[in-house]
Design a protein around this nucleic acid. Structure first.
Lengths: 209, 209
DNA sequence: CAAAATATTTAAATCTGTGTTAAGATTTGC
DNA sequence: GCAAATCTTAACACAGATTTAAATATTTTG
């Protein structure tokens, strides 16, 4: 049990969490790999192998305890801990993320936004402060966020990452359409919206396969 | 040359397009897999194999013509054609997408938004109409979009997809945190923001690997 | 200008990670 | 206690990435 967790499994962990949460809400206490597989559109064998790789409990002839399994996954993903976020770039995307309530509910608290033009887009009813980028260096030291969201123009993403690294930030959630370079001890996850839309476009052009 | 294009390559196509575009802007006319590999953080061999799989010409002892290669990739991805989009859900995310200028520049035109409460969020300076969801059925027939963006609560995503399918929409860009079921002749690409953030959280908890 | 050296892609072979299948082991429920 | 259900583990198969060898183009040099 509980050995090396492969990349492929890590990418599926959030889906497990999501589906198990639904099951909990529905009041399902236990489930078999067969049934879970149908819901998640995965083969039962893959589910068994996945779950086994990060700590295999599951009772033979019985299935998995929904709550127990979910708690284990949540802990593995670090979702039992609170996270402090800042958002760099207060355009529509930055503000949309800032106000996406479910992140806060899951323990990802947004502390502040930064923008080159802090006045823009004031209309939205938000209680979060928008600071000018010039203040970022010292404010970051003060706020001590552990995650920074990059929702700014591609051309400023790399330099911003470097400043944030200097100030102690070690995790980046990047929405800028650029491939960043970063030190080994920094964690970066990209959300390349444009890429994603282009893949849809590709698939539309190749319905046959 | 030009045989089966693997899924892994398809996911990398947008990155190729992005980097080649940058090279074009910089005025670079030709490039070797070696040099491109450094920029993209891929091994030169992978780049050569990738490019070869979707029609590879590149001149031996010379490299690839930047413009020619990019045009080929753009055509492969269907980016030479215009696309008509509607957005279902006019919350912050929906409106952020609607106003993301670069999509329009790339030929993805947003025609309209739909929302259960069409009055909400009127402050943003937008020229796009927001229609009530009740009108979706007939409006979709009239507008004839080829892509629908789902930026609505998870619980309404599946039924909306089904209605859209009925009305002829065959491509979905899904932002709702749910795994949709859909017919074989429909193309769906997911942007699971929450999942992506959770993966970042996981990585922060496992810096060692 | 021809021949050798260099750079670079192409194509085939190998390796690695991931998913699937199948056999074995454990628990449940009657 | 036995049959059915279900997980666990190991073996197998496949896709994707890397390495190696071969082919071809360009540049250099005498």
């Amino acid at each position: 049990m509980s050995g090396y967790v492969s990349d492929a499994v890590i990418r599926r962990l959030p889906a497990y969490n999501r589906h198990l949460r639904e099951l909990e809400i529905e009041g399902v206490a236990q489930i078999s790999s067969q049934e879970l597989g149908e819901r998640m559109q995965l083969t039962p064998s893959q589910i068994r192998q996945d779950i086994n790789s990060f700590g295999g409990f599951g009772r033979q002839g019985y299935g998995y305890q929904v709550h127990e399994l979910r708690e284990h996954i949540r802990k593995t993903m670090g979702l039992d801990q609170a996270h402090r976020m800042i958002i760099v770039g207060a355009g529509r995307m930055g503000r949309a993320i800032a106000n996406y309530a479910s992140f806060a509910r899951e323990g990802f608290q947004t502390l502040a936004l930064f923008d080159a033009d802090p006045e823009k887009g004031k209309c939205a009813t938000e209680e979060l402060p928008i600071y000018p980028v010039e203040e970022m260096a010292w404010r970051v030291e003060e706020l001590a966020p552990d995650i920074a969201v990059l929702a700014l123009p591609a051309e400023h993403a790399q330099e911003t990452l470097e400043l944030l690294y200097e100030k102690g930030v070690r995790a980046i959630w990047n929405f800028a359409p650029v491939d960043l370079h970063y030190p080994r001890d920094m964690q970066v996850v990209n959300v390349h919206l444009s890429d994603s839309l282009h893949i849809l476009s590709y698939k539309m052009n190749h319905k046959d396969d």
